[in-house]
């Protein structure tokens, strides 16, 4: 009897402990998946920067873009970590992306410091908890220059105090702007700035098609740098091959439009049509001749 009671107690403890251990896991199932927001900072041609935010969340064991997430973006934050200047509210696309410029109303705050913090805040929703993330970026610029010996020189500087100071050790990519991306100018994928903030790359893509004047667009860019974000500059150089547009569409060809058939085809087609339809017309003439003979015969009778 005693043994039976002990067994029942052990069983009850086992069931209870199993049940209790299941509760957190059940609770975990109902937990909201955290929304992961990242901010990227871009500057193109040393003009006003813009921001791109990406929102993603874990679903089925992997991160997937979150569409329709409302994100508030601030310029700089106070000591409590709260954003100060509202840049704007953006809503992510199907790819989980959204972007915005820094509005002119924040010019004063922008000019007040050489580095800034950008804060992205999302409110609590039925799917996600509130989140806040930020990045700090130093004001920087990149200058591109070309030399007669087909070398590309880029200089990266940082705004410190009231002046631009060259920055050493920044990875810079030198390329040529093409339709679907940038093509590197030589064999090196990237170059690192020296103490003068400069990199130099030799242009080796001779014979690359440019526009009708032979102009191509050279690019110098810093990508996803922890301190400076992504900065990019472009410069046109007459180092490409002149590209003459193919105007075959308006010449006489098989793919030409209605009145641009090749002469040989026009000649052949119309010769055949005229030949055959000429025969048909001649045959109709013969029928008319038979008819005429018949009428003459009738008149004779």
């Amino acid at each position: 009897m005693k043994r039976q009671i002990i067994n029942i107690c052990i069983g009850a403890i086992f069931i209870l402990s199993s049940g209790l251990s299941a509760v957190p896991s059940m609770a975990q199932d109902k937990e909201k998946s955290p929304l992961k927001v990242s901010i990227s900072y871009y500057t193109s041609d040393n003009k006003l920067p813009y921001l791109i935010v990406n929102a993603k969340a874990k679903k089925d064991g992997k991160f997937q873009p979150v569409a329709g997430a409302e994100i508030k973006l601030y310029l700089d934050k106070d000591s409590t970590g709260k954003g100060i200047g509202l840049i704007g509210k953006v809503v992510t696309s199907e790819k989980g992306r959204a972007g915005t410029d820094i509005p002119p109303s924040l010019e004063k705050i922008w000019k007040s410091n050489s580095s800034h913090t950008f804060v992205a805040v999302t409110d609590k929703t039925k799917d996600y908890d509130e989140t806040s993330t930020d990045i700090t970026v130093a004001k920087s610029r990149i200058i591109i220059d070309t030399a007669d010996d087909k070398n590309v020189v880029a200089t990266v500087s940082e705004f410190k105090g009231n002046d631009w100071v060259p920055v050493k050790g920044v990875e810079v990519k030198l390329g040529i702007k093409r339709l679907c991306g940038d093509l590197q100018i030589g064999e090196e994928q990237s170059y690192t700035t020296d103490s003068l903030g400069k990199v130099k790359g030799e242009f080796k893509k001779t014979g690359i098609p440019g526009n009708k004047n032979g102009d191509i667009v050279l690019v110098a860019k810093v990508e996803d740098n922890d301190t400076y974000g992504s900065i990019r500059i472009e410069k046109t150089a007459p180092w490409g091959k002149r590209f003459l547009a193919d105007n075959d569409f308006f010449t006489r060809a098989l793919w030409g439009s209605q009145f641009h058939s090749p002469f040989w085809l026009v000649f052949m087609a119309y010769s055949i049509v005229i030949g055959v339809w000429g025969t048909i017309i001649y045959l109709i003439f013969l029928i008319l001749k038979i008819k005429k003979l018949g009428k003459q015969e009738e008149m004779l009778k």
Partner: peptide
């Protein structure tokens, strides 16, 4: 109705 069956009509018809 114009066909009278003359030799000339036959000849033209044969040619056609």
């Amino acid at each position: 109705s114009f066909w009278k069956g003359t030799h000339l009509q036959f000849r033209i018809s044969k040619k056609a």
